[in-house]
Simulated scan of single mutants.
Amino acid sequence: MSDPFIVPEEESAAEAIEAIREELELFDDWMQRYRYLINLGEKLPDFPSEWQNDQFRVVGCQSQVWLNFREQEGKLFFAGSSDAVIVKGLIALLLRIYSGRDAVEISQIDPIFITDLGLAGALSANRSNGVASMVKAIQTITQRYL
């Protein structure tokens, strides 16, 4: 099986957020953006079935969401998945921003980017709460390494 942990494409979280903003701006409407999110979710590495349990479940998400991490050379790498296709795409976005960064950088990422990218307004209240729960889970893990 391939490595389930996400290695960042961009040098920094700020660069990842800006790249995502530019990608989202390529689409005319939210139906096209939802398709983009679904495609991102389909590209996530396989999440091991043995991690799909309560130990790795993110509390506060309407759909099932799992998150795992590893620390390597001072950086935190995350893996995640969901049973819902759009949520899986949202996980892919979050991991692109947060994974592969050190704890200090992660702790300095302001989750306002969710609103700034237009995601908060385009998602249902339940999905927005789920994204907030995923960010909180990442921040909780990060606190152990500060």
Results as ranks from 00 to 15, higher is better:
G130Y: 11
I86H: 06
E15G: 01
A14D: 07
Q55R: 10
R101K: 07
G118E: 04
N126S: 09
C61V: 07
R144V: 08
P48Q: 07
A13D: 03
T142M: 14
A132W: 14
K43E: 13
I112L: 09
S63D: 07
S63F: 10
E18G: 00
T140A: 15
S63W: 01
M1D: 10
A13H: 02
Q55N: 09
G89L: 12
F5H: 08
N126E: 15
L76E: 11
A132S: 12
Y98H: 01
A103N: 06
L67P: 10
E50H: 07
D29Y: 00
E9F: 08
R33Y: 00
G80T: 06
R101W: 05
I141S: 08
W66D: 06
Q108D: 09
E11T: 01
S124R: 15
L90N: 12
I38L: 11
R70H: 09
I112S: 06
I91Y: 12
S12Q: 05
L117C: 11
L94Y: 03
L123H: 03
K136L: 15
S128E: 08
S107Q: 12
I114C: 09
W51D: 02
I6L: 15
V65N: 10
R96A: 15
L123C: 10
Q72K: 06
F78E: 03
W51L: 10
E71S: 09
D29F: 00
Y36P: 00
L119Q: 14
P111C: 01
F113N: 08
A14W: 05
A13F: 08
Q108R: 15
Y98T: 01
K136W: 02
M134H: 02
I38N: 01
E25T: 00
S12A: 03
P8V: 07
G80L: 13
P45R: 08
Q55I: 15
Y34G: 00
R96C: 08
V59F: 06
S128R: 02
Q62N: 13
K75I: 03
L90K: 13
G100N: 09
A19P: 00
L67I: 06
S49N: 03
I141M: 13
L94P: 12
L94S: 13
L146I: 13
E22T: 03
F78K: 06
E18P: 00
L26K: 08
E9K: 14
G89R: 08
Q32K: 01
Q143Y: 15
P111M: 04
Q139G: 14
I106E: 09
S81R: 15
I106G: 09
F113T: 07
L94H: 12
G41I: 00
Q72I: 03
P8E: 05
D83I: 04
S133M: 07
R35P: 00
P48G: 11
G80F: 12
G118I: 04
S133I: 03
Q139K: 12
W30V: 00
L94V: 02
G74I: 15
G118K: 15
P4W: 14
Q143M: 06
L117E: 14
Q55F: 09
D116P: 02
I114V: 13
L90R: 10
Y98I: 04
S12I: 10
N129G: 12
L117M: 13
Q139P: 02
R33K: 12
R144C: 03
N53Q: 07
D116A: 12
F5N: 11
Q62G: 03
V131H: 11
D110E: 06
A125Q: 13
P45D: 05
T142F: 13
R33A: 03
F113D: 05
G60E: 11
V65I: 04
V65C: 10
G100M: 02
A84I: 07
E105F: 08
R70N: 04
